[in-house]
Design a protein around this nucleic acid. Structure first.
Lengths: 219, 219, 219, 219
DNA sequence: GATGAATGAGGATTCATTCAT
DNA sequence: AATGAATGAATCCTCATTCAT
């Protein structure tokens, strides 16, 4: 058993246990993203962390709860950004371009996340934590109202708006998810800075068009 | 090998074995779409068809080859449509709106397919038949050239074009893939005719914008 | 099982069915010899004959009975030769050298047989037909008496005689059984004529020594 | 990995895991010997050890590797004895009689080994570890040279020497392999001390004749 | 906190056999 | 006589989980 450190650790450092849990989460995130819940095995996770399988149970109660932890850790910050945007009361503080940039930046740092989300979506959200499930529908509703309230956006039919939001969502999420395959087939790394920049701009433009107050103001 | 039947079979009728194989493919398609390759079990497939597991092996050599068969059967028609479009020599015969409609109609009849494709994409295309792998890169290259050759499309930057194609791809595929979850969360069935119509129109417009000969004609 | 033919067939000609049964026996013999009863599968047999598995059942009632048929067909002729020798009443008609030669010639033509016998021996003779089981013990007893009755052989201790017979048996059978491995490891084909000749001579000498009436009379 | 014990373990005592592995090896050895690789099942092994099948995988990675371990553990000591003999430089230290005795004693204590070897031989040595495969050919070559270098042995033809070595090998190995069947058919236990003694003497004599320095001393 | 060992449940696959055609 | 299809039984193996150490 490791002896407890006599002196408190400097700020920023974490206890070994916490660091281990974090490393497990990292490994699990990558594996769940690559192979989905069923395809990823605890053996793979343990191997990647350099532990034996039973040790994982010192940090997480089960494979399910490990998965939930991965999901919450990953989705949390994104939901926060989106939440801020959606909850902004005055129209001025809603800078759609900035939201796109922040989300793209978040996902660029955690490119596993979109794949995780897609897996979840494909499985029908079976494993979504209640908290996460609870978030989605209201947020979607709010986004809908919001877009509707935007004058310029009226050029879209009422019923087409959610489809547009969906389309943007899929374009963003799919971009990250296809990166590995795209690289293999076309030799281009979508996660490289230049690609990310371009995609961010593209998404900004599309979202801008969606929320555009005045279509004429577009170059 | 079965002896050739003396009398030609009535249209639509098939030898029993073939019908069984088809039913297996149907069941497998649904299950692979729902749960991915690892999550779907042969037991599930067999149960759904009303057979015992070993009987599946009278029709497919392995789970892998069953999966490959599902994929090829499903993707084939779509590739055909896309291929026709991409290979069309004269610009006039390239009716982007029509392609969108045909593809959407195909996917509407096989809504499992997009989920299958997404699963495949997420797994890095590990199980793509060589024939399918071989199709993708060239087709993508052709599509790229094509878009570039379209005068009006020049309003997009050269490097942005593939990203746009990707975005459209993800918007279409994601639409079908999210349908079950969307229905559960929002109570709206994206596979209903009205929704499909709207989405088709939306995709038509977006693709039209992408390939528009004359950008000025846009409102 | 095929009905016995009402009319004796013309020499050399066989009904197709019989030829098929024979071909099955040939394939099965080789496979049982190579891989033993458990290791050989009906699929292998069928493949080698160019039939489907169920067709085998038109000729043999089960895998067990196919094995028994292979065994009896193979061992029969050898038992005959040995039986003649053992049953010979007058000592003069017992030409040990000739027996060795005949047996070696038989085995050379059916090199699978010794391997079959060894497999059987290793499995404790579980699958020996009652008829075969019944043959062995008495034959062995007779051989024993016989050797004992041979005056010159008395130079061996009484109890050593069966061990000598066993040793000769194993030397002969093992020779054929090891041929494939020997060839692979040493590049020498024990089934080639020259090797067979030498081995036959060696066995003759050893057997002769065993039954030698007068050791001095030997060159 | 287990921490090294502070105090050396008492002789004969082992860590629990090692003892279990040993028991698995024992059970597997017996079963592989009786039924060959294909005929022996992990269920049988597990039952005999008093474990469930999956537990076996905590000690051996696969059925194949279990088989390999059984083979190496068993053959090792025999190869050592033979190796010493073959590698002995001065003729004086080569006591053929002593080798025979040591090998017979070894096999008497592990009567499964010869059956294992025979199974391996019959299957063409498919599963021989590379290390074992590598041993055989050179050892055989050395033995050959050795016999040839022995003056008295020249009474055998050059080409007959390897056949003699083979014959001795088969006589020894077959003796142990046939023991169970022999007992069943003739009621005599070849593994009983008296039988073993006799067989050892017999083999000694035969080997002595093979390596005899002075052919003239022969009666 | 870490791990060796054990295990119930289940997964893909093979095999001998049967039966209708 | 031949075979496509179906299947019960069994095989090897994997996985998530538990527990004593």
């Amino acid at each position: 058993m490791p002896v407890a450190p006599a002196i408190p650790l400097a700020a920023g450092s974490r206890r070994k246990g916490e660091r281990t849990a974090e490393r497990i989460l990292d490994a699990a995130e990558a594996l769940f993203a690559e192979r989905g819940f069923d395809g990823a095995t605890l053996r793979d996770v343990a191997d990647r962390v350099g532990l034996r399988i039973p040790s994982l149970y010192n940090h997480f109660a089960s494979k399910d709860s490990l998965y939930a932890a991965v999901l919450e850790r990953g989705i949390g910050p994104v939901l926060e950004v989106l939440g801020e945007f959606v909850d902004a009361r005055d129209t001025d503080s809603r800078d759609s371009g900035r939201v796109v940039e922040r989300v793209m930046a978040l996902l660029a740092r955690r490119p596993n996340l979109p794949r995780l989300v897609l897996h979840e979506m494909l499985s029908g959200g079976q494993r979504l934590t209640p908290v996460l499930r609870g978030w989605i529908a209201p947020a979607f509703a709010r986004a809908h109202e919001m877009v509707e309230a935007t004058p310029g956006a009226r050029r879209w039919e009422r019923e087409q708006v959610p489809l547009l939001v969906l389309a943007v969502f899929h374009a963003v999420v799919g971009y990250f998810a296809i990166a590995p395959l795209y690289r293999e087939l076309n030799g281009i790394d979508l996660l490289a800075d230049s690609s990310l920049e371009r995609q961010t701009r593209l998404m900004r433009e599309i979202v801008a068009a969606l929320f555009r107050l005045d279509a004429a103001s577009e170059p």
